[in-house]
Design a protein around this nucleic acid. Structure first.
Length: 210
DNA sequence: ACATTAATTGTGT
DNA sequence: ACACAATTAATGT
């Protein structure tokens, strides 16, 4: 079966075979396109997604209608927020948007608890996942609290390029400003400075890292 | 091909 | 932050 093969490729090293079997049995494959909204604020969670392909960005809504990018998820990751939510049957505190097209497998909530007791590797995966999300969060908090916009912007560009495996970023200044919860003018100015420093090249609708 | 508009980016206060 | 200028892309005629 195609699904099991994909699962093995990404998670084969970490889950035992029986668990992979169970996942491919119970899980539901979902495909998504760039900019699809996978999870939105206030929605109940249907299941836990295991990312197979592509990347997802996790956003947080601010008090006054701003948005802020928290972190990216890549293949092999899962959303810790989701897990916390469905244990408690609470609504989502975050919004997940597909960064590029890809696929994930959706695990029903009930299974997740079953496997916690049944499979050591699953338990470890969940804990480890929590841990790495937590660390990611810490570092973005550092960024916001202690670093200035120019550094945040640079981090953002680097992450973007890593995740899309491309030196070229197709986004307007406006969109970038939105994700960093800043204003377009500020981003434009900082980008201009970076261009003068020879770090990037500015074109219309795309930025090239050098 | 040309004019008009909208969207994106640049700059000064 | 705001206002406006300059540049480029999109659309209609």
């Amino acid at each position: 079966m195609e699904l099991k093969k994909m699962l093995s490729e990404v998670y084969g090293g970490i889950f035992e075979k029986e668990l992979i079997d169970e996942i491919s049995e119970a899980g539901q494959l979902i495909e998504f396109e760039e900019n699809d909204v996978l999870i939105d604020f206030g929605r109940y969670i249907k299941g836990i997604p295991l990312l197979l392909k592509g990347a997802i960005k996790i956003m947080r809504e601010d008090f006054d209608e701003g948005e802020l990018l928290l972190y990216f998820l890549e293949k092999g990751d899962t959303c810790a927020m989701t897990m916390a939510c469905c244990v408690d049957d609470k609504r989502s505190e975050i919004r997940a948007i597909a960064e590029n097209k890809g696929s994930a497998i959706l695990i029903p909530i009930g299974k997740m608890e079953d496997w916690m007791g049944k499979y050591k590797s699953w338990r470890a995966f969940v804990l480890q996942s929590y841990n790495s999300r937590f660390n990611e969060l810490l570092s973005t908090i550092d960024n916001i609290a202690f670093k200035h916009m120019d550094e945040r912007l640079e981090n953002y560009l680097n992450e973007k390029s890593k995740i899309n495996k491309s030196k070229i970023i197709n986004q307007t200044h406006q969109e970038i400003a939105y994700e960093l919860n800043s204003s377009r003018v500020v981003i434009s100015r900082l980008l201009k400075v970076m261009e003068n420093e020879g770090k990037i090249r500015l074109n219309r609708n795309n930025i090239e890292l050098l």
